[in-house]
Amino acid sequence: MTASLLYSLAGAMLCGIGLFGLLWLSHLLRKLLAFNIMGSGVFLVMVGLPQHQGGPDPVPQALVLTGIVVAIAATALAVVLIRRYYHLSGMTSLEGERASREGGPE
């Protein structure tokens, strides 16, 4: 097993764990953490996979740096929204909305 494949598989596993958390957990902060785990997985795949011609490739490193900045921005926004939502509604999850105005027989 080559190093690049190892990294990629680890990344894919992190992605899977994150996805599971994002869909399964109900607490919003947990969902957010799951998103970050999933993001790390993607970054790992991104850096890990393209190492074929001996030595790391500089382009993905630059991309992942940008990606991390984006992820931080998203996380910050999410935290602000979740905090404000908690203050207004006293809830930490999105559940209980079935009875709300969205309606539709779904």
Binding site: G11, G18, V42, P50, G67
Partner: peptide, 13 residues
């Protein structure tokens, strides 16, 4: 976005 980015990573790989 993450699903898309994972796809991008695979393409680049």
């Amino acid at each position: 976005s993450l699903a898309y980015l994972l796809g991008v990573a695979l393409i680049y790989g």
